[in-house]
Simulated assay, not measured.
Amino acid sequence: MKSHFLALSMSVLLAACTTVPPTNVHQPMTMRPLPRPDLQSSNGAIFQAAAARPLFEDRRARNLGDTMTIKITENTAASTKSNNKLDRSQKNTSSISAMAGLPGQTLLGTNLQASGSSAFEGKGEAANNNVFTGTITVTVIDVYPNGNLLVSGEKQLAIGNEQEFIRVSGVVNPAFVDFSNSIDSSKVADARIEYKNSGQIGEGMMMGWLARFFLSVLPF
Rank of each mutant, 00 (worst) to 15 (best):
V188M: 07
G208C: 05
E154Y: 05
D178R: 10
K155S: 08
N173W: 05
Q163P: 00
L150Q: 15
I183P: 04
K187C: 07
E154H: 06
G170L: 12
F179M: 09
R167C: 01
G202C: 02
G202N: 07
L150K: 14
K155P: 01
F213D: 02
K155F: 08
D184W: 01
R192G: 01
A189K: 14
F176Y: 10
S186A: 11
L210Q: 05
S198K: 08
I159K: 09
K196Q: 14
E164D: 02
I183V: 14
S180Q: 10
G153V: 13
G153L: 13
S198Q: 14
D184T: 09
G202W: 03
L210A: 08
N181T: 11
G208I: 01
K187P: 01
G199C: 01
S186V: 07
S186N: 14
I183C: 04
E194T: 09
Q200M: 11
S180H: 08
F176S: 12
P174V: 13
L210I: 11
R167E: 08
S185A: 13
R192K: 15
D190E: 11
N197R: 06
I201G: 09
L157M: 07
S185N: 08
F165H: 04
G160L: 04
S182P: 04
M207H: 05
Q163G: 00
E164R: 07
L157P: 00
E203G: 04
F213I: 04
D178V: 07
F213T: 03
M205Q: 07
D190Y: 05
K155R: 13
E203Q: 09
P174S: 11
I183A: 02
E162L: 06
